[in-house]
Computed example of a mutant assay.
Amino acid sequence: MIIDGMALLFRGYYATSYSGYIMKTSKGVPTNAIYGFVKYMQDAISTFQPSHVLCCWDMGARTFRNELYPAYKANRGEPPEELIPQFDLVKKVVESFNIPSVGIEGFEADDCIGTIAKKYSQHLKIQILTGDHDSLQLIDENIHSIIMKKGMSNYEVYTLEKLLEEKELTPAQFIDLKGLMGDASDNFPGVKGIGEKTAIKLLKEYQSISGILENLPSLSKGIRTKIETELDMLHLSRKLAEIHCEVPVEIVLEECARNIDEVKVTAMFEELEFHRLLKDKSFLGNIKVNVQPLC
């Protein structure tokens, strides 16, 4: 299981702060996002029983995509003040679980996830735990995307079959979809005037952006004009949307095997004053589940 660390941390923060109350230690250190992170992580591990686990992180706001397009993600505000000190602290918590953390400056967590998933899917079944539908472009026979939905223990697991049945698109077509329609959350436009419905229709008929461009004369005048006018942005948006799967990242697979030391986890929980988790003996029991490798 490859965990999208920021996805879980932000989900943990907003799930526990919506009422305005922020959990803090007696020393005033905010911990609500970490508490939610641990709950989500252990629920997923207990539910899906992976033999190996690692966690990938974003390593700063700027990546190679900002070099390609300076406005990339420029629409995102600063993180909440109470969340900032939890960015480093949550990695210590992950370390206490003997789960390796991975992150490379200049790349997003998705790029690390994609690189590792593609490399090790030849030998292992890969489960990507995230809330981000961008991961759907990585799916193949041995890579599944576990999308976290609202609430605990609420997952949508996408396989190739599920993806084709529900979305009627292949993983590669999800990259082209973003190239055509853009992504408002990441702040790149795609082709102005082409939305999701039109983009999907074009991809189902012509298979890919390349196929669409080869058949420009067959398109309606309005669609053809929009694409021809925004051709450079179309190619740039597709490049921004594609997860880069050749990141210079290395892991030691054996170090990712589930090998949780309850003493280390308990000490971390005591430091963070997670009294409820410390009292939850069944929760601690989940840490010690013995699982066999999936390879």
Rank of each mutant, 00 (worst) to 15 (best):
Y14S: 13
C112F: 05
S153R: 14
P79K: 03
I99T: 06
E166Q: 15
T47Y: 04
I99R: 01
F48V: 09
K201I: 10
Q127K: 13
N98H: 10
E205F: 00
L8N: 01
P30M: 12
L213R: 12
L9S: 09
G77K: 06
S51C: 14
K239F: 02
Y21C: 09
Y18M: 11
G222F: 10
C55G: 03
I147Q: 06
A33K: 08
E95D: 12
L294Q: 13
N98Q: 10
N98D: 11
E230R: 02
I200C: 04
S210A: 13
S153D: 13
Y155W: 12
D111K: 07
M181A: 11
Y35S: 00
V29A: 06
E205P: 08
P171Y: 10
M148C: 07
E262I: 15
E165C: 01
S46C: 10
K27E: 14
L89W: 05
L177H: 01
G60D: 07
A267W: 02
L129T: 07
L278E: 12
A44W: 04
S51Y: 06
Y40D: 04
Y40S: 07
I99K: 08
F174D: 08
G211C: 12
K73P: 10
I260E: 09
E156W: 09
I147H: 06
P70V: 02
C295Q: 13
